[in-house]
Amino acid sequence: MQTLSKVVHADREDPVFEPGDRVQIDDRQPIGHYRVPTYMRGKPATVIAAIRPTMVDNEAESFGRNAGSRRHYYRVFVPMTELWSDYRGTDNDGLYIEIFETWLKRAEP
C-alpha cells in the first residue's frame, strides 16, 4: 500500500537519524541523574536503528515528568576498540546501546 503523500508530519515524529548515520554522543557531564554511561561520553557511533515509537526522555521521567518530551531513542554501535585502548578481544567486537535523541548530534564528515 502506497504511503499517502500529502500528510505533513509534526516536528519530531520522524527520526532525525537513520541506520548508517554517523553520530557523536555528547560529552556533557550531568550532576545527579543520567542514563548515558560515562564510558560512552563523547564517542562517535553508528546508528543501527531508530526505536519506534517515540518515547519519553528517561532522564526527565526520573524527575516525574512523563509527558511532553517524546523523541526517538537510537540503537547505536561503537567498536570495543574505540571504547577501550587496551581492549582484549577482536577488532569486530562491538558495544550496542540505546541513546536518546537529545544526547546525539550528526558527526562531522
Binding site: H33, R35, N58, E59, E61, S62, F63
Partner: peptide, 14 residues
Amino acid sequence: KIINTEEKRRGVEA
C-alpha cells in the same frame, strides 16, 4: 503512576 521505574532508579542513586 505513583513512582515510575526511572524515578525509582534516580531515588536509589540519590
